[in-house]
């Protein structure tokens, strides 16, 4: 299972970076979102894959019964997803505005500030 997930993560990173290297603004945004998803999967895999129960204490007990999954990677991923969601929403709006002001979605047309 780890092997399969590692391949998926690698594929996502590769696809993300490939899309970001294209000249299109829309592909840049898609690439960014692939990148953050790959990272979330990476945390999930690195945190250890187990077949176990959610880390919740059943009613009446004072500790989880049986093996339970590590809640921390999940909490981290949740935080990262929330942050990624916010950043992506902003990036979308920014890309749209940039498209409006420059009249092009070709990234090569946006070289004015580099000179």
């Amino acid at each position: 299972m780890e092997m399969l997930l590692s391949l998926v993560i690698g594929g996502l990173y590769a696809a993300g970076f490939y899309l970001m290297l294209r000249r299109s603004l829309a592909k840049l945004i898609i690439g960014l979102s692939l990148l953050s998803n790959a990272t979330n999967l990476l945390i999930f895999t690195a945190g250890g894959l187990t077949r176990a129960e959610p880390p919740l204490v059943p009613r009446g007990a004072d500790r989880p019964t049986g093996p339970f999954a590590d809640p921390l990677p999940q909490a981290m991923i949740l935080t990262a997803i929330v942050i990624g969601f916010g950043v992506l929403a902003f990036a979308l709006v920014l890309a749209y505005r940039a498209y409006q002001t420059t009249g092009s979605e070709d990234l090569d047309a946006m070289k004015e500030t580099d000179r």
Binding site: L25, A38, T39, I43, F44, G47, P73, F90, A98
Partner: peptide
């Protein structure tokens, strides 16, 4: 100019954040 600068800034910083997060994981 702000739009162009912001796009570069946002992209590079998001890549850096993704790497940071991966390293933390």
């Amino acid at each position: 100019a702000q739009m162009e600068g912001a796009l570069k800034y946002v992209t590079l910083n998001l890549i850096s954040s993704a790497l940071f997060l991966a390293a933390v994981g």
